[in-house]
């Protein structure tokens, strides 16, 4: 086993090859988010329930004292303003994405994996830059034993056929060298196609938290390895309970009410 597989095992449970990943890195672009005002206090209760937690580099430093029974920490490698809406305090005039970390820095931070977004539907140069970064990070990750998780985000205004755009993003991520891919819900037919050609573990990004349960059930049937929840989970009245409920569905164990946190 090489060190990349060792770290992947930290993220994807070897028992059932499934994973629940919670993305708490959006503050890098959106600032303070509901439920994440005190980041460490908000995410600590979630760590024993999830398999992976995505953080920005700064927040990851504060969580490095995790135990082996807690979620692996993934670090966000890039920044983008495409998460911002038109009513955000500083709305984007033009889409931007930049790399903010190197694989060596990610390794030094103790991350179990790197996370990069793959943006589709924006300027051609953004797509090309995503592809370049992913290929480079995948190769460096292989050399350093650090897996790369690619989050497909087909959210640009030029997306003409959303489900096909998501398939395209998954294909590009795969061809560029991703070890795990986070794929937005694209309908059952499209998920089946994705399940056929994506030869690495992939996790579902549900449309909303409300629809996540049904969409996850469909995705698991088509070969998904788990679920990717975004920061909206922390805005729920009882985030740990929500995470635990989804963890039970992902790992196909009985969902039990949880009072953690």
């Amino acid at each position: 086993m090489d060190s990349k597989l060792y770290r992947l095992d930290d993220l994807i449970r070897s028992k059932d090859k499934r994973s629940l990943i919670v993305d708490a890195s959006a503050g890098l672009s959106l600032g303070t988010l509901p439920g994440l005002e005190d980041f460490e206090r908000a995410v600590r209760p979630v760590l024993p329930l999830a398999d992976g937690l995505v953080c920005s580099a700064g927040q990851l430093r504060r969580l490095s004292a995790r135990t082996r029974h807690e979620a692996g920490l993934l670090v966000r490698m890039d920044w983008t303003n495409t998460l911002r809406d038109a009513d955000f305090v500083l709305p984007p005039v033009e889409a931007r994405r930049v790399a903010v970390l190197t694989p060596q820095a990610a390794l030094d931070l103790g991350a179990v994996a790197m996370v990069s977004s793959f943006l589709l539907g924006y300027a051609e140069e953004i797509e090309a830059a995503c592809l370049y970064d992913i290929a480079q990070w995948a190769l460096e990750g292989k050399a350093r034993g650090l897996p790369l998780v690619v989050e497909v985000r087909a959210t640009g205004s030029r997306v003409a056929i959303p489900d096909k755009a998501i398939e395209l993003g998954a294909s590009y991520a795969l061809e560029a060298g991703a070890d795990v891919i986070a794929i937005p819900y694209s309908g059952i037919k499209s998920l089946k196609t994705i399940g056929e050609f994506v030869s690495v573990p992939w996790v579902l990004k549900p449309s909303t938290l409300e629809s996540a349960r049904d969409e996850l059930a469909q995705a698991l049937e088509t070969g998904a390895a788990g679920l990717w929840l975004d920061h909206s989970v922390f805005a729920q009245p009882d985030p740990p309970q929500v995470v635990q409920r989804f963890a039970a569905q992902v790992h196909q164990s009985e969902a039990t009410p949880c009072k953690v946190g």
């Binding site: 589709l120 539907g121 051609e124 140069e125 797509e127 090309a128 830059a129 592809l131 370049y132 290929a135 480079q136 190769l139 087909a154 640009g156 030029r158 997306v159 003409a160 056929i161 959303p162 489900d163 096909k164 755009a165 398939e167 395209l168 560029a176």
Partner: peptide, 27 residues
């Protein structure tokens, strides 16, 4: 890498149409 197959009408599916050719060195 390049985006020619997705430029204009060259691809029947064209999920994310491209407006101009981009050619990028990757490795």
């Amino acid at each position: 890498w390049m985006n020619v197959p997705r430029l204009g009408n060259t691809n029947v599916m064209n999920a994310v149409p491209q407006r101009r050719l981009v050619h990028q060195k990757i490795l």
